[in-house]
Every structure is written in C-alpha cells, then in structure tokens.
Amino acid sequence: MSEVTINVNGRTVTKTVEDRTLLVHFLREELGLTGTHVGCDTSQCGSCVVHVDGKAVKSCTMLAAQASGSSVVTIEGLANGAELHPVQAAFKEHHGLQCGFCTPGMIMAAVDMINRHPEGLDEATVRAELEGNICRCTGYHNIVKAVLAASAAMGKASKGKAKAA
C-alpha cells in the first residue's frame, strides 16, 4: 500500500491505495469522479484521458502512485460552475457526440490539443491529433467541427479550414 497525494481539479486529496491501483480507478473509485471512463483498458481508445501536470495522458495506463505529487485535471474540472468550458460548449453546439462514452476523453484530448497549437488548428491536424481517441458512433465529423469551433472560440487563429470539416 502507498499513500498517494494528488491535486485533483484544484483539491488536494490523500488516499492510501494498493500500489497497483491505476490512476483511472483512483479517480473513479476512490474519489467518485466517474466522468473519466474505462473503455478498452489497453491504452487504445482514449476514453480515460485526463491531464497530468498539464499534459493529456491515458489514465488507464498509469499507476496512481506515479501521479503522486502531481496535479490532475479531469472532465469534472473543466466547467466553471454552471458555465461550460468552451470545448464542452462546442461539443454541445456541434453535437460532437452520440452515446457520449468517449466524450470525456475526447474533450480532454481536445483541450490539450488546442493548448499545444496556439497557432490554430486545421481539419487535418485535428484528425491526426485524435489518433488516440476512438468514437464508435459519430464518424468523427462533428467532433472535428467542435474542436475547430472551440479552438476559434478560445481566441486562437484558425487556419480557415473550419468550414471544410
């Protein structure tokens, strides 16, 4: 057993857990933050994506103990009270989801992607960057639209290919 201390969505929590506890299980079962999903459990699908120290990672492929001392942001940490994060708002506006299972990971991946591309995004870049997130419903079109719209809304210059999506 290890004592794990993580700042999750701005709140520092300490729990004693088995060393083999995965970060995603720490979030879901120890903290009740069930917005982060377990899809494939083999680091393919991306429904478990969270940010650790500002970087998108697959929380099913990381021990909670590895994240001890780090800051984690999950889907629950994005909205400002009742006000949705621009990426959440864009997914709602552009209907970037159907069943919604992949959505938390998609949104966390999109936020990370937009942060890493301050120069703006085009459709090809968004599609390439979504390599690690699988959606079985939408065919990705509306997800790509939502990410491009969010990128523009967040004040980043779009390269003008948003309409092509």
């Binding site: 991306g46 970087k55 998108a56 990672v57 697959k58 990370d112 960057e129 690690g132 997130n133």
Partner: peptide, 9 residues
C-alpha cells in the same frame, strides 16, 4: 509514435 497521449509519457 503511438498517439499524443502516449507520446506525453
């Protein structure tokens, strides 16, 4: 290599 999330780790 892999995908963006894998490349972060």
């Amino acid at each position: 290599i892999g995908d963006p999330h894998v490349r972060h780790k």
